[in-house]
């Protein structure tokens, strides 16, 4: 990825909390990252790591209340979206930023035809006539590889297979030529052969259309195949950031290293026994004053209890939120790479 590519999205110090009956949940804590034009940024983490909440926070897509954005800046083309009014935000959603969600079964409205749902953003953001929107909708469906596009416009979502439905979602997200596409676990609900089709489609679309993509997933395999750069999230924070090859070859955060070891593979050496990460993810009920991974970390020491580590630079475009990374110690786990 060219280092000189301009930044399209810049997120600084984002904090999102959920107010619940049993107190506050600090779902996103001081998350900062940027997105360069034309790159594919992978965001990996387990459920509750804050990866989806972060992305939903950017465009005010979280239900508020209970969600509340405490602080931060989200700069898209120099405009702070967190301070923008509702009208500006709506123009960005579906216009400059497209979304693809996890479950194509429930993410499309079951009672409207696919054509209607595709025309909506076109008419709203591009001011197209119904006819023009219809023609563009056909183009879009063809773009994402749906045969007999014109006939299928009047079909309802349930008449499409799971993979085809996710293609429709992608077509909707791409309708207004977005600069940024945010894909939230877009292949998690799909079968592996269908997932392979969608991954291939996305790679193809990105090279043709050149938008920047944020791809949220829990699947390290998907990230390895598709991402240029990766953010690893844990406990509502970014714990590591690195170019994809660097991350897999030289993980510097103990969580990343452990996660890579815990996943079995279909080729290569078979592990006699899976490496596990003991314990459970943190509850995030208080503002973090210590490292969120300390209870499960094999390398934790007294400082991890007292302080939440900052993200220390450990290489070119590579940083990790771990005191071991600050002192330059090499993870024992990383040695195998």
């Amino acid at each position: 990825m060219a280092e000189t590519a301009p930044t399209v999205l810049d997120v600084r110090d984002l904090k999102t909390v959920f107010r619940t009956r049993s107190g506050e949940v600090h779902a996103v804590n001081s998350v900062s990252f940027d997105l360069k034009a034309g790159e594919l940024l992978g965001v990996v983490g387990e459920s509750g790591s804050g990866k989806s909440v972060t992305m939903m926070s950017l465009l005010g897509l979280l239900p508020m209340p209970p969600a509340e954005i405490r602080s931060g800046e989200v700069l898209l083309d120099g405009v702070d979206l967190l301070k923008a009014d509702a009208r500006t935000l709506r123009a960005v959603r579906g216009g400059k930023v497209g979304f693809v969600f996890q479950d194509p079964m429930t993410s499309l409205n079951p009672t409207f035809s696919v054509g209607f749902q595709l025309r909506e953003p076109l008419r709203k953001h591009m001011g197209m006539s119904k006819k023009a929107a219809n023609d563009r909708a056909v183009e879009l469906l063809e773009l994402v590889g749906i045969p007999d596009a014109r006939e299928r416009l009047k079909d309802y979502p349930h008449q499409f297979s799971g993979g085809m439905r996710q293609r429709v979602m992608i077509a909707i997200a791409l309708a207004c030529d977005p600069k940024v596409l945010i894909a939230d676990e877009p292949t998690t609900a799909l079968d592996v052969t269908i997932q392979a089709q969608i991954l291939e489609l996305m790679a193809d679309l990105q090279s043709r259309l050149g938008m920047a993509v944020i791809w949220i997933t829990h699947d390290l395999g998907v990230i390895a195949g598709i991402a240029d750069r990766v953010l690893v999230m844990y406990g509502g924070q970014i714990v590591e950031q690195a170019p994809v090859r660097e991350l897999f070859a030289n993980p510097r955060h103990p969580y990343t290293a452990a996660l890579l070891k815990t996943v079995p593979k279909v080729s290569g050496e078979r592990e006699a026994r899976l490496t596990i990460i003991e314990g459970q993810p943190p509850m995030l009920t208080a503002h973090p004053t210590a490292c969120p991974f300390r209870d499960r970390c094999a390398h934790a020491f007294d400082r991890c209890e007292r302080e939440n580590p900052a993200r220390y630079t450990v290489g070119d475009g590579h940083d990790a939120a771990c005191f071991k990374a600050e002192s330059g110690d090499v993870m024992p786990e990383a040695a195998h790479a």
Partner: peptide
């Protein structure tokens, strides 16, 4: 609370729509 409502908002539709 359904997912398609989030999709509609993510498409930039007004609350009215």
């Amino acid at each position: 609370g359904q997912d398609y409502v989030r999709t509609a908002r993510a498409k930039g539709m007004t609350e009215w729509v």
